[in-house]
Design a protein around this nucleic acid. Structure first.
Lengths: 243, 243
DNA sequence: AGCAATTGCTAACGGTGTTAACTTTCGAGG
DNA sequence: CCTCGAAAGTTAACACCGTTAGCAATTGCT
């Protein structure tokens, strides 16, 4: 072990990363244009002017490729949320959170196939297991929202949870707390964050999967009401509401 | 056209329906035991001791078979919800609704693969289109919940929606109203029903897809709080809460 | 210059949905 | 009773899929 591993970013590495990215780009295009069933090794290779076995030089198999695609989508979503956050002043975390939630909904509705891949993972059990890139990416995605909740908590006004915390929860909530930047937050607060996160994510998913189509042509006002509820529970000042 | 069409339920028809059912049963078993990718025409045929093309005598193809499976799962879920409803007195619609919601969550958690098939439909666009069996079945499933909300409304106490209704919604909400039994409900009420339905369905989906595993080992108390919120919005008497 | 890693290929295996053409079975009408 | 036709199932085949093995070519480092 001497030189090859140490060559920090040779041109070879660059071109290889470009290939990795192009594979993902092609796979995503197939996902968007033809549906999840069309993102196949052979189709990707065909689109790239090569053959399927060649892709094995870049990804260990179809499963790994899909996982890498999901991870990159998590990253893109996290970036979009962070940008939405930075478009508004840091002194108004309530408004920032509102805009981030809106951006999450917009992204899901604009990219339903991608959102479907992230929310309804193919065979489950691959996301929550730590160590995987998708696990980290999903944290990077949710962290944008959770961090804003932390700032909101610092401003005070977060409603305490309606019941006393089950002690069995404490351990895992501790783990969540470690992922949050800055000074520690009481577990009561973390519980409220998780509850709000669940409600937000659920509202977006139900709409993105078309489960409101039977009743509402445009569920946006409903989502805004949900947002009002969430921000109220987090003690956001009402003046930060409605743009 | 004389006799064959008129033979109302000859033995031949019975055995055919039994075959149709066995195919679905086998497909479901594969779904549960091996995951969605394993429910394949050839595997089903293999399990049943026949060959794949033979299944085309019963279903027009893989797509149709999956759709029929989804439809039957909707039916089973609707039946489970109705049974949960009937286990409690008709005079307490608040309690009935609470138990039905609990049963929905329980069913989703006990049958995650089946729930995944229903919530994250393979390629979308097949569910909302009227005329399909899955469309009717999904109505039968949601109707159990919505009907209880109607009864709750009759008892009074449903909170009016936080804003005036967008007139564009009226048309589609009218359509929803026609699906509800009994005397007509004002559109304001229907809006609240849809909002509560969305929140319920979203909460169940987020948990069933494992998106709370990162923070909560047992999200049941969180679900109960959500239920409290929903029932409060519907004006259920608090004494009907918590078993 | 030469060696070794990287990159891509072809060939092949088993599995998948789907179609076409064939056999077999079985129920009903004369 | 016999026939005839619909129904149910078969085999063969096609195109596609993931994956592996083995081979050729290219590239980059010493």
């Amino acid at each position: 072990m001497s030189s090859t591993t140490g060559a920090r970013t040779g041109r070879k590495h660059r071109v290889r990363e470009e290939a990795l990215a192009e594979i993902l780009r092609t796979g995503r295009r197939l996902l968007v244009e033809e549906g999840p069933g069309a993102v196949t090794l052979r189709a990707i290779a065909r689109e790239m002017g090569m053959t399927a076995p060649g892709l094995y030089r870049y990804y260990a198999g179809h499963r790994d490729l899909i996982q890498a695609l999901a991870s990159s989508l998590y990253d893109e979503l996290a970036t979009a949320l962070a940008e939405a956050r930075d478009r508004h002043p840091a002194g108004e975390p309530g408004r920032r959170l509102r805009e981030v939630c809106r951006e999450l909904r917009r992204w899901a509705l604009d990219h339903p196939r991608e959102f479907g891949l992230l929310f309804a993972k193919p065979d489950a059990d691959a996301d929550t297991t730590p160590g995987t890139a998708a696990h980290d990416s999903s944290w990077r995605f949710g962290g944008v929202v959770l961090d804003l909740m932390v700032q909101l908590w610092r401003n005070g006004g977060v409603q305490p949870p309606p019941t006393t915390l089950d002690p069995a929860w404490a351990a895992q909530l501790e783990e969540v707390r470690e992922h949050l930047s800055g000074e520690p937050v009481p577990l009561d607060g973390i519980y409220v964050f998780v509850a709000c996160w669940a409600r937000l994510y659920g509202a977006v998913a139900v709409e993105a999967f078309g489960h409101l189509d039977f009743a509402l042509t445009d569920p946006e006002p409903l989502f805004e009401h949900t947002l009002d509820d969430i921000l109220t529970a987090l003690g956001a000042t009402p003046d930060a509401n409605h743009r």
